[in-house]
Amino acid sequence: MKNPIDNLNKVFDSRIRLGVMSVLLVNEEINFNDLKDLLQLTDGNLASHLSHLEENGFIKVRKGFIGRKTNTTYSITKAGEKAFKDHLAGLENMIKSIK
C-alpha cells in the first residue's frame, strides 16, 4: 500500500508557510505588509519563510515602489499551486486512511 505521507510536502510542514500559500491561492497578489498583518508575524520571521518558499520556486517576488517606499508583492507560481494542491490531497488521504 502506498504510504499516504508520500504526498505531504516537507516545505509545508510549517504552519506559517502553509498560511502564506493559502493566502496566495485566493489572492492574485499580496504585499509584504498585508501578509504580515494577516499572519500576525514579525518582519524577520515572515521574510525567512518567504525566502524559503521562493527558493523552492513556489512563489514569485516582485519588487516595486509606491512613491519612494519599496513595495514587495508576492504571488503563487504554477509549481507552487500544484505542490500546494498535492499537499492538500495528501492531508485528505491522511485523514481518510486513519478512520
Partner: peptide
C-alpha cells in the same frame, strides 16, 4: 509523524487563512 488531528488542524488553518485574506 503526522496524526489525523494535525492534518485536520492544517486543513482548518488553510481554510481560515483563505477566508481571512479574501473576505
Amino acid at each position: 509523524m503526522r496524526s489525523k488531528e494535525e492534518s485536520l488542524d492544517a486543513l482548518q488553518d488553510i481554510r481560515k487563512m483563505m477566508e481571512r485574506s479574501s473576505r
